[in-house]
């Protein structure tokens, strides 16, 4: 009887600590990190907006066509996303998980499939799962499909097409490492 109550109290204490870690770390609000993906490499900054949402700003080197061998240099893009936390749970291991989804917008100077460099504008959706450790370091995996336009300015015309890389890369996972401060 004593051992089971001790065990239960230990579990409750671990769970409370994990939830406290989540809220303490997330409540501090700000994080910097990097996103790595077949689509490119980004530097990211995120900040808590409300108790259940945060916004994220990312500056990317678009490398999808470079890694495919279709271009020599990466493009650049800036992405803004407003993420809503769907579920925030603790674990007995000392870290916690956070699932989020949210809309965003993207703008940049990138290549597209079978297309040269042009202006990219579009809207995006981010959906991800984040693990925040007790060390204030978070690892997350997310996907971000983009629906946008790719505009190429040539000598005699302006060509605007659907940004195909945004749909082709919609399910390519992105791994993010962030540090909360």
């Amino acid at each position: 009887m004593i051992s089971s109550s001790t065990c239960i109290s230990k579990i409750l204490l671990a769970a409370a600590s994990a939830v406290l870690i989540c809220h303490t770390v997330a409540g501090q609000g700000k994080a910097v990190g990097s996103i790595w993906s077949y689509k490119g490499i980004s530097m990211t900054y995120s900040q808590t907006a409300h108790e259940d949402s945060f916004y994220e700003l990312a500056l990317s080197a678009d490398m999808m066509d470079l890694l495919n061998g279709n271009s020599r240099y990466p493009g650049v893009a800036a992405r803004f996303a407003w993420n809503i936390i769907l579920k925030d749970s603790g674990s007995a291991g000392g870290g916690c998980f956070k699932a989020y989804v949210g809309p965003g917008a993207i703008m940049g100077w990138t290549t597209d499939k079978d297309c040269s460099y042009g202006i990219l504008t579009g809207i995006s959706t981010v959906a991800g799962l984040e693990y925040i450790s007790s060390r204030k370091i978070a690892i997350s995996v997310s996907v971000s499909p983009i629906l946008g336009c790719h505009t190429v300015i040539r000598k005699d015309m302006i060509q605007m097409k659907l940004y195909r890389n945004g749909l082709i890369g919609s399910l390519i996972p992105e791994a993010c490492i962030k540090y909360y401060f």
Partner: peptide, 10 residues
């Protein structure tokens, strides 16, 4: 190497 937990290292 940063130890995030006893099993997970970054």
């Amino acid at each position: 190497r940063i130890s995030l937990s006893t099993k997970l290292k970054l």
